[in-house]
Amino acid sequence: MMKFASRRSRVMVALAAALVLAGSAAEARVGGRSSFGSRGARTYTPPPATRTAPEAAAPIQRSQIPNQGPNMTRPGTPAPNVAQPRRFGFGTGLMAGLFGAGLLGMLFGHGFFGGLGGLASIFGLLLQIGLVVLLVSFAMKWFRRRQEPAYAGPDQGYARSMGGSVPPTGGRPMSGGLGAGLGGGLGSALGGALGGRSQQAQARPGVRDEIGIGESDYAAFERGLVEMQDAYSREDVAKLWQLATPEMAGYIQEELNDNAARGVVNKLSNVRLNQGDLSEAWREGSTDYATVAMRFGITDVMTDRATGRVVEGDPNKVEEATELWTFRRDQGGSWKVSAIQQA
């Protein structure tokens, strides 16, 4: 009986340890593989799909901006249907007039059609009215066509995919790593394959860029990705508060505190940007936002805080992750991470 109890105790301990390790693995990497932060007025609006992240991004799970649900008014959202009062149009007014004239004719002894001079008069009146309606309709269409703007051809429009905007086939996503990632793929020539720097800035005309993202911005985005992972791995809280908004830095610091309570350290290394592209960029007052889809390689392990022993992950394996990072810039300052969403 004692042997059975001892064996059961060992099994329970093993299960508890497995659950702890599973919890650590599920929350590994910056953000704990969750979607959190703020994207201004577009926090709960899915960012447009890109070639790097063609699937819909995971919705924001934690944010200081309240989610008011589907009834929240968003740009481009049609107004709810409101019952309109009943209107009587041209046809109902005409028939009412004809019917009234017929009744008057009957009252004065001229028959139902006597009020309008007989059936021939009715058909003559209808014919005249029809001609007038046709002339007015033709004139309105002619003036409307003259006032319509000339629209761009299909090569300058959006290529729709998964509910978002994907650049035309002429644009290429960036590839490479720290030397040819966001800054090198979109802001400069990709190893000379796409031509000079001046031509590369126009490589993706279909992107929803309302503020004009340039080479220095793409380089800042890539640098933010690498420095955030490094600061998180070193548990450098001061650096995290420099790289992220106060909201994001607070969330990430909570994760570090949880790791410390469990006695583990999340070590991240070999961060390399493989591909990425801009999803959208916009301005709200004096604040600029830019959401970038990034696919990057990373070595993600969990180690014991006391001994340094690897308790989860493979230190010799480089995993690949795809996330959408939103950066915020206040009054022309530096870009800071304001949201991370899983692709």
Rank of each mutant, 00 (worst) to 15 (best):
G183L: 04
V82K: 11
V166A: 06
Q68K: 12
L278T: 00
M1Q: 10
K267P: 00
L225N: 02
T45D: 11
M2L: 13
S24K: 01
A203L: 13
N71A: 10
W335R: 01
T77L: 14
A58T: 13
A152G: 06
A238P: 03
S161W: 11
V318E: 14
F143E: 15
G297C: 09
A321W: 14
G69C: 03
Q128L: 15
Q147L: 10
Q61A: 12
G93T: 14
E280H: 05
N71V: 09
P70A: 14
L256Q: 00
G196D: 11
Q253E: 09
P149R: 11
G195K: 08
A26N: 08
R86I: 15
R8Y: 13
D277G: 08
D209K: 03
R197A: 12
K267Q: 12
R234Y: 08
L103V: 15
N259R: 08
A96Q: 11
T299D: 10
V310L: 03
I65K: 05
E235C: 09
F4G: 09
F143N: 04
A120Q: 09
V337K: 04
G97F: 07
R144D: 11
A49S: 14
A28N: 01
F88S: 13
Q242S: 12
Q199P: 01
L186T: 05
R328I: 00
E227H: 04
G93D: 15
A28Y: 00
N259F: 01
M95C: 13
I213W: 07
T291R: 05
R62H: 08
G308F: 00
L131I: 11
T169F: 08
V11T: 11
P59T: 02
P315Y: 02
V207Y: 14
P47E: 10
Q275P: 08
Y44H: 04
I213G: 05
E222T: 07
Q200W: 04
D236K: 02
Y158I: 10
A231H: 02
T303D: 04
R86M: 09
P66C: 00
A5F: 14
R74T: 15
E323G: 07
Y232N: 01
Y289Q: 03
G196W: 06
A120H: 11
T169V: 15
N270G: 06
G195I: 08
A96W: 14
G102P: 10
G181P: 05
S286L: 10
E215I: 09
G332T: 02
S198W: 13
P173H: 04
S24W: 08
E227C: 02
S34A: 12
T43Q: 02
A14N: 06
G177Q: 04
V264F: 04
G185V: 05
G170V: 13
S9D: 13
R283C: 03
D304L: 05
M228R: 14
G23I: 00
A79N: 09
A56G: 05
G184E: 12
I340G: 05
V292Y: 08
A53G: 06
G111T: 11
T45A: 13
F296D: 05
L268H: 01
R208L: 15
G192S: 02
A16E: 13
M1S: 11
I340K: 06
F221Q: 01
L190V: 10
R51Y: 01
G40T: 00
